[in-house]
Simulated assay, not measured.
Amino acid sequence: MMKLYARVKHLIKTETVLLISAFVAIVTMFFVKPSLHYISYLDLRVLSLLFCLMAVVAGLNDTGIFIRVSEKLLKKVQNIRSLSFVFISLSFFSSMLITNDVALITFVPFAIMILRMTGQEKYFIPVIVLDTIAANLGSMLTPIGNPQNLYLYNTYYVSMIDFLQITLPYTILSFLLLSITIILMKKETLQLTIINKSEEKKTDNKKRYMLTMYCILFLVCLTCVIRILDYRLTLLIVFVVILIFDRKILRKVDYSLLLTFVCFFIFVGNIGNIPVIRNYLGNLLVSRELTVALIASQIISNVPTAVLLSAFTDNYKALILGTDIGGLGTLVASLASLISYKFYCKTEHAKPGKYLGVFSLYNLVFLVVLCLFYMLTNT
């Protein structure tokens, strides 16, 4: 009985959004009878691309390429300020291509290890918090930076140029804000010696082959993102190649995220078939798209907010910015933020309360500045 309780408790902690999405989807089924029509709710292109990107990035991560790149950058680090800048830059720029959650899964544990090696555990909280903000804001630039961008990019059939025109000014401002924040940190000298175990892997031919394979597969995914290659062909190529050459990677795909999207697709599809709710949300969003997206993201996170609100507005610019900027704020506004929080809580002498306080303060400042920028540039 205790084991069952522990498993349920763990499931609730780790898959909160999935459980919520499943619950709301089931509730709507009482109002819209389940049928084969549900299949039309699913955006198969988004689901296929998500699967492909997650599998390919997991494969790239498995080759150790991200750690090797960061090790090379860290060789010239001499103080805590430059160390912070390296990690925050890694998360910010890598998240544009490998998504915010993968960037944090890769670099937050590495940052913790380096800070511990140099005796700078006191910087755990500010570095991890800024790392998280960097990943969430850097990922806003591209359609593949985070799940909600990929979904909105496909749902509204936005061109790559239009998408970048929307997100680039906010991405540049975000990096400037991060840089200013780091400059305000103490320039405390530290001794950093990287034991580069990855050097041994350079002679590993299999690793080189795997890296080449996954780079090619990533390019295949990009051709699908920019709508050159059909998503069904992309899915077939990625799945078959990985199945043949590196099938263990298929176990590392975040299937709970895919299932969460399926549940929200059903939820949104059913909501769209309930006239009272459809009309209410449609009226609520008129001229308030960004505000509603920001507020909703704080409560149910930005991915489900994007799926839900997209069914009731054509203002994709406000929705893209609302869900991207809305990733700032509460710990659940962007689910990627929970990844960093969990890593921090596992460190020795962790202070979750202090972490949440610093996290909330930094996020609020960045959120306010970006919202003010939106107001100034859209009046």
Rank of each mutant, 00 (worst) to 15 (best):
G272N: 07
R232V: 10
N302A: 01
A293I: 07
N205P: 00
Q298L: 12
D324C: 07
L309M: 11
D324I: 00
L229M: 14
G269S: 08
L229K: 07
R278V: 00
N205W: 10
F264E: 01
K206Y: 13
K248F: 13
G322R: 02
I249C: 01
A333S: 12
T291V: 06
I277W: 06
F267H: 06
Q298H: 12
K317G: 04
K206P: 01
N302P: 00
Y209S: 11
T305D: 05
N283Y: 10
I277P: 01
A318Y: 07
K201D: 05
L338Y: 00
N270I: 00
V276H: 09
F312L: 15
K206M: 14
K201T: 04
V238D: 08
V241D: 06
I300K: 02
V262C: 15
S256E: 05
V225F: 14
V241G: 04
I226N: 12
L308S: 13
A311V: 04
S256L: 12
N283D: 10
T330P: 03
Y209I: 10
G322Q: 10
T203R: 13
R208Q: 11
T305P: 09
D204N: 14
V238M: 13
L211D: 09
I339L: 08
K197Y: 08
I274Y: 04
N270L: 01
N283A: 15
C221V: 09
L250N: 03
A318K: 03
K202C: 04
V276E: 10
L328S: 13
L250M: 09
F264T: 01
G269H: 06
I271E: 01
F267N: 05
V262D: 04
L257G: 06
I228V: 05
T305C: 12
A311F: 15
I242M: 15
P275W: 07
F265A: 03
V262E: 10
L338N: 00
Y231N: 12
Q298C: 11
S287C: 05
F264I: 03
F245T: 08
C263S: 15
C215T: 12
F261Q: 01
G329Q: 02
V253M: 07
I237M: 09
T212G: 15
V276C: 03
T203D: 11
V238R: 12
I300S: 02
R227V: 03
G272L: 02
A318M: 10
V253K: 09
G329H: 05
F265S: 01
G322H: 06
T291C: 03
L233E: 08
V241R: 03
V253D: 02
Y214I: 00
V332K: 06
L308H: 08
F261H: 02
A311K: 15
L233N: 11
N273R: 13
K252H: 11
I228M: 05
N205I: 12
S340Y: 03
L308D: 08
S310N: 13
R208A: 13
D204Q: 09
G326K: 08
L284C: 04
